[in-house]
Design a protein around this nucleic acid. Structure first.
Lengths: 201, 201, 201, 201
DNA sequence: TTTTAATCGAGACGGTACGTCTCGTCTTAAA
DNA sequence: TTTAAGACGAGACGTACCGTCTCGATTAAAA
């Protein structure tokens, strides 16, 4: 017997009569303001004005401007994902290159840096950022490294957590602290020194 | 050779009739507020109220709250300095331990993290922080590593800049991003893996 | 002779498929809110919530909260009407007593005072209130006084309009300005002084 | 020898470093907005914008817009005062003429009507208005009538309170309820009928 | 010792943005 | 078509701080 296919009505959920157009306008306005005016230039009033939206509409769906930015990050972070490559080492190299580009060029990278910045001021933001972004990222990397060990591409003694810190640490250090670019050759040496040299590449 | 007994009369400088008591009260108030209320809870009005000082007194000597915090950092950062040890490797190990403690326990470490956070929002702060804090720190480390190479304690092929990034990267990554403590054994392995193993320890 | 039982089908009016239950719920909710929270506490949102009715339902039938209150007044103002008495003077005395009670005790009197208040802020409300309430009231009084003159109960020289002002003026003055009660003896003296003493009483 | 007349320092009072220019700008802006846009068009934001003043400056000195209007009324109400005349009857006539003009033409009269209107919505406003305005006015009238009785210009049996109501009632009734002008001849008849005819005029 | 000038606590000022509230309109789904 | 529900653009509310300003009082150098 076919279930009544009525839209909504799944599991007591509210119908969510949300205006998608307004949602996108808010995310783009926030993004634009961050790029143009910097983090302190992103205000709820400013977003509302630029998006042609009422302040209340923003407060209805996002508790704070951090949450707006978190949403834009979520939408843009897919760019960091990597499809399977010939070798794990290559996958990791590609992934880190994507990250370096993201942090260095992409406007969305600005959002990530700004959120990491805000996380230093505000514990809930730190928690949200870990949950919504870093936890997922790290799990992917963990899985990838384990796969490499299982396949014999990486040394069995490799400490996975510390290897991840050793790979990401310098990248974020440069992005957050020294504000220097990381050239590709540097990045390649980094991967090599952490995962060991290999004939496979 | 008569010393100029006048209180600080060097090179056309104004007499600087500054109230040291007020200066310290401001720095402490800022520190306290940061610890109690977080970065956004540090306001000029709040500092003034807690320090029992007029707002104008703060604005007279510090252009912004970032500058107040930068001053507290300057006073506290001496703790990171390390006196010469038997080996360079040991000096570095000690130094990194100090940093990990500073970032993890010391209220002054909170100030550093907050300033790095603010630096993500605000380019001038980033520049100030590099100039006033990180440049000096890094120069010390650079010198230390070069000394190690000269003495033959470290490998001649060591890339100094990349080694510094490899040492500090994971520490700041944990402090800023994953918010995990770094145990001493982990730190020791880190130093070892970057500077190479050695009979000297 | 069966009366057409259809809900209000007078003179070419639209069928008015209006929910009488909702209508009454709105009027009562408005009344209650006025009594409990005062005029500014009467909001369309509040009425809708208390009446268990959608805002749109209110806006569909009443352009503004003033119109809602005007409707409650219309329903309650019948209490002010007076059936013919032995003498005009007695009729008027009764009428004024009713008004004093209405303004002093009756919740509906609150509505009238609130609307007079709003009329000071808002010319259309003033016009509506005159048309829908005061014009009719005054016409009744005008007619009554003229009847008294015709019957010889009142002096022929009595200026009708000024007599009405002289009777109502002090009552509304006390209700609106001094916020004092008007005792019955005072009221009786007032009638006497305006309409003259008379053996008829 | 006279005491050194230093300004300030009298009886522990604060210096009241209030900006008179801002104060006047606020009062005028409120007055203008009331005349142009009506009571609901008078907003703190609007006053601030038109007066070129910060909202906080208004909130610092006036708890609400009612208090702003009360201040403008206080300043303008002096126009209602009457210097001694040949007879009490004449004084009263003059006073009532002033009031009728005030209510009918003067922008400040608008303020009074608006405040009486608001007093219907809001008990504290009613109390404030009585205290700050009507109590003083009525006391003057009370005193004047008593003086008339003492001098033998008015009948000894005159009930002072009721006479005042009888004089002011119709004037406010017309201003607040019927919104009709009161011609001078009508006003003269009113005074005559309440205070009695007299050879003196 | 007197004068002069900078600093101090205090706090008013013109502003900006906050987060909340209510308005009156519009949209959706059910009855 | 009307209903209840509630999202939407709009805009005022009252608050918190911003950075600037003026005010007298205090303090320490220079005259």
């Amino acid at each position: 017997m076919a279930t009544p296919d009525k839209p909504r009505m799944q599991a007591g959920r509210a119908p969510e009569r949300r205006n998608e157009q307004a949602r996108l306008a808010v995310l783009h306005a926030a993004d634009d303001l961050l790029a143009e005016l910097g983090y302190d230039g992103v205000t709820i009033e400013g977003i509302a004005a630029r998006a042609g939206v009422a302040k209340q509409t923003i407060y209805r769906w996002w508790p704070s401007k951090v949450d707006v930015l978190m949403d834009t990050l979520r939408e843009d972070a897919e760019r960091l994902n990597v499809t399977p490559q010939k070798s794990v080492r290559q996958e990791i190299r590609l992934r880190l290159r994507r990250l370096v580009e993201f942090l260095g060029k992409d406007p969305a990278g600005l959002v990530l840096l700004a959120l990491i910045g805000q996380a230093q001021h505000d514990a809930p933001t730190a928690a949200r950022l870990t949950e919504d972004f870093f936890a997922g990222q790290r799990e992917q990397d963990r899985e990838r490294l384990r796969r490499g060990i299982d396949r014999g591409e990486l040394a069995a003694e490799l400490r996975v957590e510390e290897a991840i810190d050793a790979l990401y640490g310098p990248i974020y250090f440069r992005a957050l602290v020294t504000h220097e670019r990381m050239p590709r050759s540097y990045l390649d040496r980094l991967v090599e020194s952490v995962l060991g040299t290999s004939g496979l590449g």
